[in-house]
């Protein structure tokens, strides 16, 4: 059940065409497969993408908790005693007007900034002074508001870098090509390829990331983040710059990710997208949490309405 299933079966070639941001494009052999074969193939892909998907996930158990997190730069308080939690298996939306502290919140979770006070707990354990890379290996992955891919690397390699977060081959192992190196390489590449197919850009696996069209780059970032096998996937405005059709597809993808057993934290300006896909919303304004609840409830919340008054739904270019 990849998003690719709905798109045109025509061969896509390696022409850079930033105009065609249409995601998807099932290619080559997959396109010529019978329905049965295709289903089988997709099941295989899904298996690799989300190995834990069949495990019964207890939705509602707390995965990540922000506990009175305060973050200030100089005199400026960017986050003011923010507390909320993310439950396993849900899609949580983090919204708020510009400058409300959404991205700062992300940064506090992923170790880019350290809270001035308060704690971020993952599965009950505080992140404390862990390095960014260690936090990733504990299970939080993210994408970036302004895409930050490894431009000179191929799409596939970008994703393999993500899978490397789970690999343990050291310099010596790589130097001497020890068995673990071979095993991890094989696993990494297979998983990365499956992820590329999952997000619908496998046909461009061999292209440099910087040569991919914009929409592909966004999807590639998601694949790369998923490759680190996160417990929590944080998406920072993944739909920025998308047209409505693309947004629709993205929503589908996000739901699929959730269905595969991941927990998703989503920031976006686009209320329609956020309302449409999330299970729960947290609203920030001026670094403070002003609401927390199901989309329908939040939409009715007077303080949220006040905060968003005059702010159109899709104010993002």
């Amino acid at each position: 059940m990849t998003t690719t299933s709905g798109s045109t079966p025509e061969m896509r070639h390696h022409l850079d065409d930033p105009g065609t941001d249409q995601p998807g494009g099932l290619v080559g052999e997959v396109a010529r497969m019978s329905a049965e074969e295709r289903a089988e193939h997709e099941a295989e892909v899904a298996d690799v993408v989300a190995p834990d998907r069949d495990i019964e996930v207890e939705v509602g158990e707390t995965l990540l908790e922000m506990r009175d997190v305060t973050l200030s730069f100089g005199g400026l308080v960017a986050l003011d005693s923010v507390s909320f939690s993310i439950r396993r298996g849900e899609i949580l939306g983090l919204i708020g007007p510009n400058g409300a502290g959404k991205t700062t919140c992300f940064n506090a979770m992923t170790g880019v900034y350290r809270p001035s006070s308060g704690d971020v707990l993952l599965e009950g354990r505080p992140l404390g002074r862990l390095k960014k890379s260690q936090i990733t290996r504990r299970g939080i992955a993210r994408t970036f508001q302004n895409i930050r891919l490894f431009g000179e690397m191929t799409a596939l390699e970008n994703v393999v870098v993500g899978t490397d977060a789970r690999h343990r081959t050291g310099v010596l192992g790589a130097l001497l090509r020890l068995p673990r190196h071979h095993r991890e390489e094989r696993e990494g590449v297979e998983r990365a390829m499956a992820l590329l197919e999952f997000v619908g850009i496998a046909d461009r696996a061999a292209d440099k990331a910087k040569n991919l069209p914009y929409g592909y780059q966004r999807r590639l970032e998601i694949a790369r983040a998923l490759a680190t096998e996160p417990k929590l996937l944080c998406l920072d405005e993944p739909a920025a710059g998308f047209n409505p059709a693309e947004k629709e597809e993205l929503m589908g993808l996000i739901r699929e990710i959730r269905d595969d057993g991941y927990t998703v934290l989503l920031i976006d300006h686009d209320m329609k997208l956020v309302m449409g896909v999330t299970d729960r919303l947290v609203v920030l304004e001026f670094g403070k949490k002003i609401a927390d609840g199901r989309p329908a409830e939040v939409r009715e919340d007077p303080s949220v309405i006040a905060a968003y008054l005059g702010v159109p739904d899709d104010d993002v270019a």
Binding site: G111, V112, F150, E152, V161, H167, E185, T228
Partner: peptide, 20 residues
């Protein structure tokens, strides 16, 4: 190997590499 990939990733975008 993963070492070489890490190097290129660092060359390309050190912060993103760390976060990955």
């Amino acid at each position: 190997s993963r070492v070489g990939r890490a190097w290129v990733a660092i060359r390309e975008d050190e912060d993103a590499a760390e976060i990955m």
